[in-house]
Simulated assay, not measured.
Amino acid sequence: MKKYIILGVMAVAALSCNEKAAAPAKEFKTAYVDTSKLIEEYTEAKDIEAKYKAKSEEMGRELEAEVNRFKSEASNFQKNAQANGQAWAQQKGAELQKREQQLGYAQQAMLQQLQNESGAEMDTLVKNVKKFIKDYGKEKGYDYVFATGEAVSILYAKDSYDITKEIIQLLDDKYKNGPKKEDKPADSKDAKATEAKK
């Protein structure tokens, strides 16, 4: 009797599995975006990179001028150390060592400032691009839009699913036609002066 009950349960289970398997599978509309290529080719990302490269070069020139003055003083120190005596050499040596430390700190601060500023802008850019792609996916009726690039989240996709170029073009059009951002005044006095002029 137990055998018949077990066989009956197995038969019912097998039939229910077959019914589920026979149900038609839903087709998903999918696409993917190569995020490395997107960031490399998107005009706003290029503009941010160029902005901080120029800013880095400008700040680097200012720091380089300070470093060259320091090297000149250090060279003069070595020439004049014996002529001016040990007390002068110790005092001047301590001053030069302090300036060398200050130059190192200035360089670190400059790099940190550039990283913080560019990082904040790139984070905002990435956030806006993700929102854009999400809205685009909804509008076009995609079930999934995957990301490829440095952080791969799919292992295979047909090239026909790649919408990277279309996304870049639409983002570039939006960026070029959108309102231009103006730099904000550095402090509230500048902002008040600007408001007073209007």
Rank of each mutant, 00 (worst) to 15 (best):
D173C: 01
A151W: 02
K51P: 05
N80A: 14
F146S: 03
K46S: 10
K55Y: 04
Y32G: 00
M110Y: 05
A50T: 08
Q107C: 03
V129R: 00
F77M: 08
A21Y: 08
Q107D: 10
R69L: 12
G93T: 06
L15R: 01
D123M: 11
T35A: 08
S56W: 03
N177G: 15
E58L: 11
A21L: 13
Y156E: 07
A87T: 11
Y42P: 02
D173Y: 00
M10H: 04
N18S: 14
D143H: 09
G93Q: 09
G60L: 04
E95I: 00
Q169E: 13
E121R: 05
A191H: 05
L63S: 03
K174A: 10
E73H: 06
A54F: 04
D143W: 01
Q101D: 12
G104M: 08
D172I: 00
K53G: 10
K92Y: 06
D34H: 01
K189T: 11
A45P: 06
G141R: 07
K2M: 09
A74G: 15
L38K: 01
Q115R: 12
Q113Y: 07
E41A: 11
E195L: 14
N116D: 09
N116K: 13
A186H: 06
I167N: 00
N80D: 14
T164I: 02
F70R: 05
A191R: 08
K79G: 11
S16H: 09
I48E: 08
A157L: 07
K51N: 10
A25M: 09
A186E: 13
G119Y: 07
K71T: 08
S75Y: 07
E58I: 03
Y105V: 07
K98T: 10
A94N: 11
G85Y: 07
P24Y: 01
L7I: 06
A22G: 02
L171N: 00
S56D: 07
K165Q: 14
L63F: 06
A45Y: 05
F132M: 03
K198W: 05
E117P: 05
R69N: 14
K55V: 00
E66A: 09
A193I: 04
I39T: 04
V33C: 04
K92Q: 13
R99D: 05
M1Q: 09
E64A: 14
E73P: 06
C17S: 12
I6N: 08
E121T: 02
S36V: 03
K189Y: 10
K158P: 03
E57P: 03
L63Q: 05
S16A: 15
K2S: 11
S118Y: 01
Q102S: 12
K130C: 01
K158W: 05
K55L: 15
